[in-house]
Nucleic acid binder design. Sequence first.
RNA 1: GCCGCCGUGGCGGAACUGGUAGACGCGCACGACUCAAAAUCGUGUGGGAGCAAUUCCAUGUCGGUUCGACCCCGACCGGCGGCACCA
Length: 878
Amino acid sequence: MKKYNHKKIEAKWQKFWEKNNFYQAKDPAPGVEKVGTEFNSVLAKNPKYYCLIEFPYPSGDGLHVGHVRSYTALDVIARKKRLEGFNVLYPIGWDAFGLPTENYAIKTGRHPVDITKENIKIFKKQIKSLGISFDWSREINTTDPNYYKWTQWIFLQLFKHGLAYKKKMPINWCPQCKIGLANEEVVDGKCERCGAEAEQKELEQWMLKITAYADRLIEDLETVDYLEKIKIQQINWIGRSEGAEIKFKIQNPKSKINSKFKIQNSKFEIKVFTTRPDTIFGATFLVLSPEHELVDKITTDGQKAAVLTYQEKAQNRGEIPRQARDDKEEKTGVFTGAYAINPATGKEIPIWVADYVIMDYGTGAIMAVPAHDERDFAFARKYNLDVIPVLHQYIEFWDKETQLHGIHYGSTKTRRTFTVDDYNKIITDLDLLVVLKEQAYKDLEEGRIFSGEGILFDSGVFSGLYSEKAKLEITNFVKGIETANYHLRDWVFSRQHYWGEPIPMVYCPECHWVPLPEEELPLELPFVKKYEPTNTGESPLAGIEKWVKTKCPKCGGPGRRETDTMPNWAGSSWYYLAYIMRGNSKFEIQNSKFKIQNSKLFKYWLPVDLYNGGMEHTTLHLLYSRFWHKFLYDIGAVPTAEPYQKRVSHGMILAPDGQKMSKSRGNVINPDEIVEEHGADVLRLYEMFIGPYDQTVSWDLNGVRGVRRFLERIFNFENWVEQDEKEVVIAREKTIKQVGEDIDSMRFNTAVSAMMIFVNKIIEAGCTKETFKKFLIILSVFAPHFAEEQWHVLDEDKSIFDEDWPKYDDKLIDKELVEIPIQINGKVRDKLMVDKKISEDEIKKMALASEKAKKYLAGQTLKKFIYVKGRLVSIVIS
RNA sequence: GCCGCCGUGGCGGAACUGGUAGACGCGCACGACUCAAAAUCGUGUGGGAGCAAUUCCAUGUCGGUUCGACCCCGACCGGCGGCACCA
């Protein structure tokens, strides 16, 4: 009995695979062109398969068991695809810019470059010990100038196409990290990274116009195969809401004139955005955001002081991001003294200022319909403003006796949708409107407001219309324009830190912002001794006068370089392209011919077939990189509109105590220790078996031992037979089928289970070497070292990975005899072994004659007999 | 508040498209081996009743559809994730 010495076996085969370049993806040969869907090259004729994991950030903590889970999962898929004849690209690299490294550098006084190198070395060693079939020849590193010159190149293109702009704006500022934060990086008003309360700070920031792609980022989700929840989350984040922009004329009564601007029957108009133009007859006041430019201009002399005080207060409160504030906080506001005309009713309505209206959404002004909006209602109550309902919920309900429609109160879920017929029917039914109106006022008295869709009343000619239908008509009536607004904001692209890509722009007093010529890329990060972020909000690079002072590329005059760096999401927004480019070129910039140089490779490899990553990146990295890709597509640099065809997500691995693993809790499972004690194959198999791939699971040490046991049981397998029993043949074919299907649909846990069932079978019944070999090939994608070793023990001299994925024969799986349960009134009372092809008549006879069934059938009448072919018999008696 | 997901043994979980609920693994119990323990192997293992054949109950709760429901529909309870003064 040999001992299962995983260390020896794993080291041996890892060396062997590396030496033979087993996992190198093959690029199409030069001159290869796509002809239809085929390539005219032998090399590239194999269908390609590009699978991708999110490249790791090489932190000082080393590899986490969570990394192992997703790397192994895609490794299983990559290996299976190779066995099936695909030309597989499964690359890895390093997303190495970022704060943890910079902070560590500051703390230790060492250079981030050195620390990064060191961390990568550790990560690499750890990953290599797992037997993941990465193509290391395409390794990339975002901090390599040869890499980030392309990141800079893409930025320049964005700038040249008007999608990068500089803007002075209040940004979310983390006082702890001393860095500006994107909206996406503020969680609960706190810095996502360090948890410090975010502040607002006015800074000049580079912005990327991701909002220009908002619609396409939503629409094109239909063309990709992402997990449904990922799509939904992205759609919600982009937050498109359709509505109308409507202008309200300002009309101050003569007595209330703003002396400075002399506004009377003014030409000034206030534009509001609303998703409910249908409720405009109920708009009883307007609200402007405190930052709205018209506030100063329309405020009457009498209200000046009060408004100014309020504005100052609101700005101070701006220190805490407004969105983070408690929902239930009472609304405050102040009257401007000015009035506007409701374009629907022609009535004068007061204009207020309140900070519940945000400047950077919509137009920064709203029409308030207190009867149909919670916030407006709270505000109106507080300041005693008019509340006028104009619609109420309506559910079709026909009272036969009175011939009246009724009103039904229920949740929105039970509400019916309206048909065209309904519209007509309702308009003429005036009694109904009276009922609705009465009910609406009654509800309001009781403090209940209705904000859904319903039937309009008191809305002029639109009374009686269903609100959804009235939207467009009323918008036209008040000369509004249909438009959409987005929750998504432009991407704040500046960071005031050292350890990031320099933004390749020069500021010239004459020419304003001038891009660096592409030939001058990369603009390398200057070597500095001090990286400490400053308190002024300026990047540490600003202190290097020698680097900052430069010539304007346009006019040759004195210029200053941009000293902000890019966020760490920059390098990761296009890295899947870098892996492809690494195949032939070494990222050489030749007159910026990004697309020409790479078009053939891109055509062959794109899109990424399968992309795995964490749910936490759904609204960050995943959205950002889709945006960049679409931009690159628009300028003709890449051939596809989407970068990733399919996106899946792994669940988290918690510590055995059900808590998140963390150093401070001391509950971290180190993959190295598992590899050391049980082996990489056991770790891999265990992580695949631990539970459904997309689900959060807790680590269980006993589970690891169970998997080890599974391998040990077949390590010295010797129960050979001359000929497989029929049962074994069936088991084998079934296993091949199930494991294959389970891998394809990423149900790794049941795949491992199926292999265990098969092993239980052959340990009991024995099997032929041929059968065992087929099993080993299947096992090899999960436990590559173990399978390769056993393969060679069975006198094979070629690698197991030169084999083909085994095929199965459905005919062999089909049993002739099947066990059919006999149900009587839904309960299983007997089971019969019958020929699969038995006719209904035959089985009926058998079932009714069965001893056990007879017991229940005696004296009863047979009401129904159902035979589901090959499945079961169901007998209904009275 | 809005959007989405999930509730199955002692535990992780399985169950194809509505067709024998609890696969596989862990744990536990008993047995074999051993001086003994560990490891290994064997047997059992949802709950209740019964010596047993057997039988009743059981997939968060209540109800519905169906010959048949973990699966479909409705209401509720509990948990998780995302968004949140977005007009």
